[in-house]
Amino acid sequence: MGEMVVVAGATGYVGRHAVLALDAAGYRVRALVRSRERAEAPGAFDAPSLRGHVADWCIVNYAEPSTLTDVCQDAARVVSALGVTRQKASPWDIDFLGNLRLLEDAERHSVASFLYVNVLHSDYGTSLTMRAKHAFSQVLRRSEVAGQIVNPSGYFSDLTDFLLLARKGIGFTVGAGESKVNPIHGADLADFIVEKMAGPAGSWDVGGPDIFSYREMEELAFEIAGRPPRLIRLGPGATASLGWIADRTSPRVGNLARFFLESLGVDAVGTPIGARRLEPYLRSVPDQR
C-alpha cells in the first residue's frame, strides 16, 4: 500500500490534476475539500473529477482552524495547491493562514515533506495574493519539514480569458505586450509535482514548452476566435488609474486588478517542462457565444 499524501486545494485546477497523478503513481490521496459532491463533479477548464481517485476525504474550512486538526495524521507528505484568486475569500486568510495552519499540523505529525504550489515572482507583486503567497513560502523555507516550492509561470486555464475576450472582439496588453510567459497545463505540472515530492527540499521555477509574449498570445487568441485584432494598450498612467479605481471599489477588486495587471507587466518564464502545448488547448475551448 502506497504512502498517504494530503492534498490541499484538491478541487482547484492544479489540485485536481495532482490528485489524479498521485493516484496513478500508487500513492493514497487524502483530499481536503469543502464539498465532496463538488470534488466528484468535473472541474472548470476541463479539470478532471476526483471520483474514484481519493482514498480518504476530509471536509475542511480553512477559515476554521479546528477543521484542520489531525488532517496530516498517518500521512507521509503534503501537497498544497491551496490559494484563491477570484473567490470572495481573503488571500491572506487562505493563501497564508490556511497554508500556515496546515503546515503546523504537518509539523505536529512529522510528515516528510510539504510541497507548495506558489507562483513565479511572488516576491515581486504588491497584490495581497502575491504577498500572502510569498509570506507562506518564506515560512515554509524555515520549517523543520522539507519544504518544496514549485513556482509556475502561469496556467493554461488563466489564458482562457484571453480567448473569451477575443471572442467578444477585444483584448488588452500592458505597454507593448512584450513581457513573456510560458504557461503550463495542469497535468504537466502535476507530473512534475509527483516527481519532486519524494525528493529533498528545493525551489523550482517551471513553465510549459511554449514561450509567448502577451501580445503574441493576444494575436493567437484573435486568430482562434476568427476576429480581427483589436488591442487596447495600457500605459503606466492607465494601469495606475485602473489600480486606483479598483482599490476604491473593494479590497477584492483591488487585489484582483493588481494581481493581473502586475502579472502582465513582467517576464515570467520558468524552465520548460511537459509536452502539452497552448494553441491546441485554446482551440479545444468551446465557443459558447
Rank of each mutant, 00 (worst) to 15 (best):
R86T: 15
Q87R: 14
Q87V: 09
K88F: 04
K88C: 07
A89D: 15
A89K: 10
A89W: 05
A89S: 12
A89H: 08
S90T: 13
S90V: 13
P91S: 14
P91F: 15
P91K: 15
W92C: 10
W92K: 10
W92A: 13
D93W: 01
D93G: 04
I94P: 03
I94V: 15
D95P: 00
D95G: 07
D95K: 03
F96K: 04
F96A: 05
G98M: 05
G98K: 06
N99Q: 03
N99H: 08
N99Y: 03
L100M: 07
L100V: 01
L100C: 01
L100I: 06
L100G: 01
R101D: 01
L102H: 03
L102Y: 00
L103K: 07
L103M: 06
L103I: 08
L103A: 10
A106H: 09
A106K: 03
A106R: 05
A106D: 05
A106L: 05
E107V: 00
E107T: 00
R108L: 09
H109C: 11
H109D: 04
H109A: 09
H109V: 10
H109I: 12
S110I: 02
S110T: 09
V111G: 03
A112M: 12
A112E: 15
S113F: 03
F114I: 13
F114A: 12
F114W: 08
L115E: 08
L115W: 07
L115Q: 10
Y116G: 00
V117A: 03
V117D: 02
V119L: 05
V119H: 06
L120M: 11
L120Q: 14
L120Y: 06
L120V: 09
L120C: 04
H121M: 09
S122C: 02
S122D: 11
Y124R: 12
Y124C: 04
Y124F: 10
Y124E: 07
G125L: 01
G125S: 05
T126W: 00
T126D: 06
T126F: 02
T126N: 08
S127G: 06
S127M: 05
L128I: 06
L128K: 02
L128R: 10
L128T: 07
T129H: 12
M130H: 04
M130E: 01
R131Y: 00
A132Y: 06
A132F: 05
A132E: 06
K133V: 06
K133R: 13
K133D: 08
K133Y: 00
H134R: 09
A135S: 12
F136C: 08
F136M: 03
S137L: 01
Q138H: 02
Q138K: 13
Q138N: 09
L140S: 12
R141K: 15
R142E: 15
R142V: 09
S143W: 09
E144Q: 10
V145Q: 04
V145W: 02
V145K: 03
A146M: 14
G147I: 05
G147R: 04
Q148L: 11
Q148V: 12
I149R: 07
I149P: 07
N151R: 15
P152Q: 14
P152K: 14
P152A: 13
P152S: 11
